[in-house]
Amino acid sequence: MDNKPVMAAGPHIHSADSSRRIMLDVILALLPASIAAVVLFGPRAAAMICVCVAAAVVSEFLFNLIAKREQSVGDLSAVVTGLLLALNLSTGVPLWQCALGSVFAIVLVKCAFGGMGHNFANPAITARVFLLMAFTSTVAGGAAPRMVDAVSSATPLGLIGTEGAALPTLGQMFLGLRGGAVGEGCILALLVGFGYLLVRRVISWQIPVIFMGTVFVCFLVSSGSFTVALYELLAGGLVLGAVFMATDYTTTPITAEGRMLFALGCGLITFVIRRFCALPEGVSYSILCMNILAPWLEKWTRRKPLGGV
């Protein structure tokens, strides 16, 4: 090796951050929700998480091998995608469908577009929507947690507005004692993860807070009921989606203002779908729609540089 001092352009120091560290932080932030999923739904949830993560990592590894691309599984982003997908599915989904979802997310949504940083839509959400369309009966049905009786097993979102239906209490909703995807129920665990991401500065508060706030305010205005608005906030995949999916770097605008508009759009679309459409997938569809709009939001929110025009 040449022993001369290196010549290089500045800067000559660098922050301690790396892409891998960011992904690791997201995984750590998802840990409370993953543990809650296993506590609430039992070994079956653990199996789903393992299958989704393994399928995501193996498919990325094989894709890179076959396509002769540089190996990228070390950046941990496939682990994040697999984990997010698992937490977005309910225990009614057969494991082979879980695995298929992961392969779809990694190969078609991520790798086919050039790998990390190049996909136009969030892989985990796209895969969830794909599974929903392909296997509507298993994916749309929400299995109940182990300790909840059959009465409250239906997803609360389907019951709001149905008179006399036995809804879980707000406290039960907060802890995740209700049907639905394994990782979306325990709001407490998700908020712990949110706090961790804020402390580590992986994300900023704007997207989650504006997204959830918009949904809350819209329901408050349209229903006039604080309780209904609170239910809507805790129900479905809103918190999981707002904290972990709508904050995905690649598929959101790069500007701070763009990200706020993005979150506002997500909230409005979620409200419209939940309020006026017979669809249970408000959060997923809203994020997917806004993912597609992200490049435009980025364009519209370009700042005037200091000293520029």
């Binding site: 000559h12 660098h14 892409s19 960011i22 050039g114 990390m116 770097y249 959101t252 500007t255």
Partner: peptide, 14 residues
Amino acid sequence: DAEKTKASPCIHCG
């Protein structure tokens, strides 16, 4: 300290 870390793809973090 002079070592350079290899660049990886942009993740659009902003």
